[in-house]
């Protein structure tokens, strides 16, 4: 059985089902991260030693800034990958999409270096409330990055065969993957100042 409206827009919604599905998923993600941001506000407002915990944690602003730039760059390479498919330039798509995955791996590498430094200094989630919410927020975000890497690796690998048989559907898949990826970038844009700078 073929799933209807995976490429062409449904007349009533004006968008294809894949795109609507991804946006529904992202709407649920807004609530997930929103709930955790609320938790952050609640813990911070109620804490007696927040600034002490924050300075003791010693988060590296250079690493946080670098990772922000890495994610923003991965967002533009993702847009360029999708745009390349729209312009029927598959070679350029592979380059930009490959760069997006590589930048995601760079982000994870910096995150691993950061976590390793924290653990080696005895800074664990149970140490204090700042570290608890820091690990929950950044850990959940890192899991999203990992999920993106897995799906994108499939799309540039075995999944790319679809380009030869149904280019329009493949382009829709990349657009959906892009929406997810930009959302992950968007969450980090709030996480960075909240956890590192304030």
């Amino acid at each position: 059985m073929d799933i209807p409206y995976i490429v062409h827009a449904r007349p009533d919604t004006g968008v294809n089902n894949g795109k609507l599905g991804v946006w529904l998923f992202l709407a649920s993600e807004v609530m997930l991260f929103g709930a955790l941001f609320s938790t952050y506000v609640f813990l911070r407002v109620g804490a007696s030693d927040w600034h002490t915990w924050h300075s003791e944690a010693g988060l590296s602003i250079p690493i946080g800034t670098t990772n922000t730039i890495v994610l923003i760059t991965s967002s533009i390479t993702m847009v360029m990958a999708w745009a390349s498919l729209m312009m029927k330039e598959f070679g350029k798509f592979r380059l930009y999409f490959g760069l997006t995955i590589a930048l995601a791996l760079v982000f994870m590498l910096f995150k691993a270096i950061e976590y390793n430094a924290k653990f080696s200094h005895g800074h664990f989630p149970g140490t204090n409330n700042f570290l608890a919410i820091y690990y929950v927020l950044t850990g959940l975000h890192a899991l999203h990055i990992l999920g993106g890497i897995i799906v994108n690796s499939y799309l540039i690998g075995p999944g790319a065969k679809l380009w030869r048989t149904n280019a329009a559907q493949f382009t829709c898949r990349i657009e959906a993957a892009g929406l997810y990826w930009h959302f992950v970038d968007l969450v980090w844009i709030f996480l960075f100042p909240t956890l590192y700078l304030l």
Binding site: A9, T13, G14, V15, K19, W23, I76, V79, H182, F190
Partner: peptide
């Protein structure tokens, strides 16, 4: 976030169903 949403996620040119969502 507005820049990412409007241009990278194409919300500046999106359909009403997505806005409603």
């Amino acid at each position: 976030v507005s820049l990412v949403g409007a241009y990278f996620m194409h919300l500046a040119w999106e359909k009403r169903a997505i806005y409603a969502l």
